[in-house]
């Protein structure tokens, strides 16, 4: 069974590379029963979205 420590790393790596089928299954099983990791996964995506807005903002700050 995947632990939170590995799950959080998978949730980050998901943004950088396609996960293998095996990893996807293990991660889905873990997040199905683990609310904190589910939140963590959402927050990883939030951070990506924030970074996008931040970079855009920097661009428009210059104009």
């Amino acid at each position: 069974m995947m632990k939170c420590k590995q799950a959080t790393q998978m949730l980050s790596e998901k943004l950088d590379r396609p996960l293998s089928a095996k990893e996807k299954i293990a991660l889905t099983m873990h997040t199905a029963i683990c609310t904190p990791c589910r939140q963590f996964g959402k927050q990883m995506e939030d951070i990506r979205a924030m970074s996008k807005s931040y970079a855009k903002k920097k661009e428009s700050d210059r104009d």
Partner: peptide, 17 residues
């Protein structure tokens, strides 16, 4: 953040933002 067994420390569990 994590206990030795790989689970979240109680106080560090991510909560909804």
């Amino acid at each position: 953040l994590f206990e030795e067994n790989g689970h979240w420390q109680k106080d560090e569990r991510p909560k909804k933002w």
